[in-house]
Design a protein around this nucleic acid. Structure first.
Lengths: 244, 244
DNA sequence: CGCTGGATCTCGTTA
DNA sequence: TAACGAGGTCCAGCG
């Protein structure tokens, strides 16, 4: 295990500490974490996460960058109470302060991760919309595209088309067809059906996967459900084939 | 370093792995993390966080519990590409799947944290409200308390009082007086001033600290700003003195 | 730079 | 359990 001083100087590294500690935070709210064993994660920008073995990705407590962390010795009183080390993390801008009182360090290591290339979001839903516009006959024989992202007063409808008879068709596209997607489409349909130029507007709820509840609700409201085969649609489109 | 099989059996522990890896996620969206060195944090409920050295507390990628993680060997093709290990994390309910392709493990440790006693929110705001109700003359000579948490149609006003002349006074209390606190109080005042029994209602924005923007907005709307001295108010109240 | 809206939101409370 | 609202929200996009 490297010395503390040595580690402190080492920037561009994540420090992982398992310690028995208590934590106090004062900022927008005041909060206290009683003494327990936790994971302390110090990032190279000086930010700190306090994690427990549970919960979701949100730490029990944290300090967001930009902030500065000072690791110091306890006062005599604190030392007497069993505190070995005190970390004080401050955010100058907001006056937030987080104090970690460390009683015992059970593990301590630092790791250089380098810079991260970052997340690539694939945007399946946007891609599905594009594919569907190109292959509008997945809606049925004789359908024609009016436009993608057809604007209404409460937001854009994914696709507006016309069927073989010239009737308007509003399509809501989701990767996963859930009940709130049906509600969303219902709101659009309600609004569009007030427009004499569009009326009557049929609704199509299109998704790679449609939850039973959503299907039931949709069909009860006269909305047609359409399962989309993403791979097949992408297969017809020769432009890309990246997959993992 | 303990064997993998041994570690897998060990529940109730957080496993920390530093690894060169790539990550793919498919769920509500599809996302990909290119090959880089990252921190993998496996909690004992099977959930996984993928952190980089940066950002705030949100991981680059994650899988929330309940989920199951299976750690397996790569296929021949994957092995040829340099992948040493493949972790697959699935959520049965939502069909979300997260795949971590591990090229090289640089650190690997497991730590038993035990159960966490959890966060105690101190609720300074609630305490301030209580203290102010007890020391209602901080509003000025001759003020009397009507009630705390006075209900209106859009929510409770922190304190309703009457001044020396019997005029209604609505008080919004914050630890930190920000602009949205003023907006909140404004909404209450607007509503309360429609009530013939209360009208006219004066507004007081009380906080330990009031941001200049908030003060300007408040005073522009005829709302009085009142700085609260928490320590002094608590000093008058002898009931408790816990502090860190 | 500040503002706005979405989120694999998370997290609590309430009906 | 579901619905709703707030968050020390975080985060990207846009003016």
């Amino acid at each position: 295990m490297p010395e503390r001083g040595e580690r402190r100087r080492r920037l561009g590294a994540v420090r992982l500490v398992i310690a028995r500690c208590s934590v106090d935070y004062a900022g927008r709210l005041s909060a206290h974490l009683p003494l327990a064993t936790r994971l302390l994660m110090v990032k190279s920008d000086g930010s700190l996460l306090v994690h427990s073995d549970g919960g979701s990705y949100k730490p029990l407590n944290w300090m967001s960058p930009p902030c500065t962390i000072t690791m110091g010795d306890p006062s005599d009183e604190q030392a007497e109470a069993g505190i070995a080390e005190v970390w004080k993390v401050t955010q100058k801008k907001t006056d937030d302060v987080l104090v970690v009182s460390i009683y015992e360090i059970l593990h301590d290591s630092a790791h250089d991760l380098g810079i991260d290339p970052g997340l690539q979001k694939d945007g399946v839903e946007a891609h599905l919309q594009k594919l569907m516009a190109e292959q509008i006959d997945v809606l049925g024989e004789g359908h024609t595209l009016v436009r993608r992202e057809y604007m209404t007063a409460i937001g854009p409808v994914d696709i507006l088309a016309r069927d073989a008879q010239g009737g308007a068709v509003a399509v809501e596209i989701k990767r996963r067809g859930d009940i709130d997607g049906v509600e969303q489409l219902t709101r659009y349909l309600e609004l569009m059906n007030r427009d004499p130029h569009l009326k009557p507007v049929a609704g199509v709820f299109a998704a790679q996967e449609i939850k039973p509840q959503a299907r039931t609700l949709a069909e009860d409201r006269g909305i047609r459900c359409l399962l989309l085969d993403y791979d097949a649609m992408r297969g017809l489109d020769d432009s890309d084939s990246r997959l993992f």
